[in-house]
Design a protein around this nucleic acid. Sequence first.
RNA 1: GGUCGGUUGGCCGAGUGGCUAGGCAGUGGUCUGCAAAACCAUCUACGGCGGUUCAAAUCCGCCACCGACCUCCA
Length: 496
Amino acid sequence: MPDQLHIYNSLTRKKELFEPLNPPHVGLYVCGPTVYSDVHLGNVRSFLSFDIVYRYLCHLGYKVRYVRNITDVGHLVDDADEGEDKIAKKARLEALEPMEIVQKYTNGFHKIMRLMNIIDPSIEPQATGHIIDQIEMVKRIIDNGFAYEVNGSVYFDVEKYSQQYHYGELSGRVIEDMQESGRDLDSQDEKRNKIDFAIWKNADASHIMRWPSPWGDGFPGWHLECSVMSTKYLGKTFDIHGGGMDLKFPHHECEIAQSVAADGTAPVKYWMHGGMLNFEGKKMSKSLGNSILPEEMINGDSPLLDKPYSPMTIRFLMLQTHYASEIDFSNKALQDAEKALRRLTNALKTVEKLPFVEGKIDEEKETTIKALCHECSEHMNDDFNTAKTIAALFGLATQINTFKDAGGKVTGISNDTFELLKSTYATFILEVLGLKEESTGDQSVLNDVMSILIDIRNTARAQKDWATSDTIRNRLSEANIIINDNKDGQTTFEIG
RNA sequence: GGUCGGUUGGCCGAGUGGCUAGGCAGUGGUCUGCAAAACCAUCUACGGCGGUUCAAAUCCGCCACCGACCUCCA
């Protein structure tokens, strides 16, 4: 197992040792949301995957500049020529200013990110704030001979590019095949070749989002913003670029082509692609209309769901699967995850409370615990394998619970190992995996009230007044509070 | 049609040549006034057929099924 970070690079299709271009600095770019509607669970998964990448890189001590854009212009709705900007279309539908749409859904996106405990990027650039830079990049591509202008629109010349460079190296596509098998789109007369793509689109007065350019009024093309903003903030070549599998082609392929055509260098050293999230076996996507919003899941407000699930339950379930694999969400999976997460976090509370007692060292136990602690890092080093890391954490949870069961103290291991156990367990759960403790309402008041109820119940129990003690427990259970009489004589509660 | 990926025990889900993944559920036990939690034990699979190998879930071939991408999508 690796003791240094290895990343599966989509570009080379191999797991590679991670060597930053300029250590200890790391440049990380992730394709952000297009803010024309609510982010759904599938989007969340992708951002979570790269949240883990960011967190772990930071954990390893790298100084990471993490750029995740907001796409607020530039995605065409239909085919290339008759296409309308997604934001503009939505603005018409909702009778709002385009920037009102952008603000509304950007706010919603941020809210979900916070709920899911996804850390903010270092820079969150917006495409509309970089129109000038995008125009500059279009100019460079034209100057280098890889784009041509027709009627105020500028198209990337894929064939010309592929004479000199390799278009399709990321997605494994061959341009001859694409020319044969690609579907025919309407009104493509302007393009020299149907595999060419727009980098600047002409827009007449009826378009509500347009900017002046050397080619007349218009708006930037589909894929340009990411090339521009990654270059601007991370340089012409940077370390890691992430996004969902569905962006590999054409979006990321075009990004590579644009950067190479403009600046002559491959933009990215390690390409990472996250797997899709399915519901009932189908990719969850806006266009298929089978998406569940995170808020619906948290409120249980969807006909597809049996009950509400907490943000950390959702987070945990996602992390039980490797980022590159598909996940199929279901009620059963969510309920299992809820219980499993509770086991993990209960052990965290336990280990923080258990006293250490010096004693004869049990070599086997000592070795087991140390090995499990090391495994947490080793598994994360193996292409961010959160599933295996979680397995190791469950191993530690069992060790912790065994201490609790066997006398409610930690003994038989060295103090160093105990400290390692405590810090590893807490660090990986809270910082690396970002599984924060969830609390509902005012904890301090609740704690006070609960300690009163527990006192009354314990008095009843001491008098063998089971009717009273069980009534308290049952009524609390109805209120979703579970009472546990632990082996050590302590009574605790948890919100279930 | 083209390209790529997947098919693992009751369910979810790791895993690329030999060593128990893990979780949830189930079963038996310990503990408990009873529960719950926890612990111990148990159940232990790799789509089908063929091949390579001392050894295959893991490599190769064929077949079946599922999915993604090829058009905006995380």
